[in-house]
Amino acid sequence: MKEKNENLLAQNRKARHDYFIKETLEAGIALTGTEIKSVRARRITLKDGYIQIINGSAFLENVHISEYKQGNRYNHDPLRSRRLLLHKNEIRRLAKAAEERGITIIPLKVYLKHGFAKVLIGLAQGKKQYDKRETIKKRDQEREIRRKYRV
């Protein structure tokens, strides 16, 4: 577990608050040289990101990777769409799931694995306001129980 946390570069904390995560999948990201340097420096934001499937390829959209400071003229566009490296079967399964009503594909985490940048993507279904309140209530109750037994 500790090894995973050291390699964690970015996390979409609001995803589990706003969505029910039905399934997760690991994918590689096709990045340019200055992008990977910025990602390793943890200058990436997943907040409003989503995955879109176009012509049998999966793309990571609306994820901000800041420009690399020493990148000069070879720098990248911070909001460009980035291709995800997945098998065709996985892409087909994601496309089929995304066609369902209320299902979206979102990035949950970006981390390094064996020197390569990976993204953990999730099939998510949006929560209603009352679901969010219920989740918060349940979490507070569990915290209170743990506090009582700890003393």
Rank of each mutant, 00 (worst) to 15 (best):
Y68R: 08
K69W: 12
K69R: 15
K69E: 15
K69Q: 15
Q70M: 10
Q70L: 14
Q70G: 15
G71W: 03
G71M: 10
G71V: 11
G71K: 14
N72K: 14
N72W: 07
N72G: 08
N72I: 08
R73H: 11
R73C: 05
Y74K: 14
N75S: 11
N75D: 14
N75T: 14
N75L: 11
N75G: 10
H76R: 12
D77M: 11
D77N: 13
D77S: 14
D77Y: 10
D77Q: 13
P78H: 11
P78Q: 11
P78R: 10
P78N: 08
L79N: 13
L79P: 05
L79D: 07
L79M: 15
L79S: 06
R80Q: 12
S81N: 15
S81A: 09
R82M: 09
R83N: 09
R83D: 08
R83Q: 14
L84M: 06
L85C: 05
L86T: 04
L86S: 07
H87N: 12
H87D: 12
H87C: 03
H87A: 10
H87Q: 10
H87V: 07
K88G: 07
N89G: 13
N89F: 09
E90F: 04
I91H: 06
I91M: 02
I91W: 00
I91Y: 01
R92L: 02
R92T: 01
R92F: 01
R92V: 01
R92W: 00
R92C: 00
R93W: 06
R93K: 15
R93T: 12
R93Y: 05
R93I: 08
L94D: 02
L94G: 03
L94N: 04
L94F: 03
A95Y: 00
A95Q: 02
A95I: 00
A95K: 01
A95H: 01
K96D: 06
K96F: 00
A97S: 03
A98T: 01
E99A: 04
E99P: 02
E99V: 01
E100G: 01
E100W: 01
E100N: 06
R101W: 09
R101E: 15
R101Y: 15
R101G: 08
